[in-house]
Amino acid sequence: MNTTTTQFVPPSARQIREHLDRYAVTGPSRLMMWLPTAGLAAVIVLSFTGQGAGLFLAWLLLLGIVVFTSIRAGRTRSIEQRAVRVQELALLRHYPQALRLSWRLLPAVTVNGEVHGRLVALMGHALEQVGAYEQAIVVYDWLIERLPQGHPASLQLQAQRAIAQIAAQRLADADRSLRSLRGVADGSPPGPLSAAYRLAILYQLVHTGHDEDALAVGGNLVDELRPLGVEAGLGYALMATAEQRMIQRRPEEADHYQSEARTWWTRATLLMPARVLRARFPEIPAELEGLAASLAPSNPVARERGPQPHD
């Protein structure tokens, strides 16, 4: 990753793989864990066997143990705070900064599996959001390989990976990912996993031009995508895209499809700005933005709104 210029250049897929392999989780050092205990044992022995200098050495050793454990505790806390900072940056959609910090922090967290996993997942999310799909896939693969099969985090990552694979035109891989998720996601209660899976399926169908199939998915889509929050707007925009395309395919039902396209586009733009939707999914036709100008509900706060979190 280029860190000397202000221009953000994401690392290559190979660099990512090497970085992750080099700084994989190693667990805490046994020597570091037992050092304070060994030191305390030495203090006891010295205090009973030594006289004068020996006793002084015992107290010095005790002081050393106190300083050592305090420095270790302080370092652990500092690393955890920086990991929280990465999370906050990603939440605020400052993806290049989140990526930079997680990249630099990774070597320091190899002893803490939980923080390490969190950082790598954030790295994958940030890469996906900046459009570095191949790199994001590498990160997701790396994490999925290391999580137990069927682990909720693994399933969630598989859904995210499928979306990245579609965007990177790796359609066969995406299809395989979605097939492996089908049984689990279909049976799971409404939640982030089933919502991410629905979005991935919808994206696959719209991306490959299966618009009629995409419309068949839409029956209960608002309830199904609700756990995604404002990101559900992406799914509604894909539905609007499918409806819009159907106008050309079935001109005899143009009114119906146009009306449906308006409804979905209205929902999409209620949650996310049109330019953000199109930037994320280039499949969304520009004609839909025309619909927004005439039909979408006016956003009363848009005029006074400053920089948006999606910017």
Partner: peptide
């Protein structure tokens, strides 16, 4: 008395939670 704003916020609410 900002009815437009209230409607816009309410519509978003319906999409975000039950």
């Amino acid at each position: 008395g900002k009815e437009d704003l209230a409607t816009w916020l309410r519509q978003r609410t319906e999409l975000l939670c039950t």
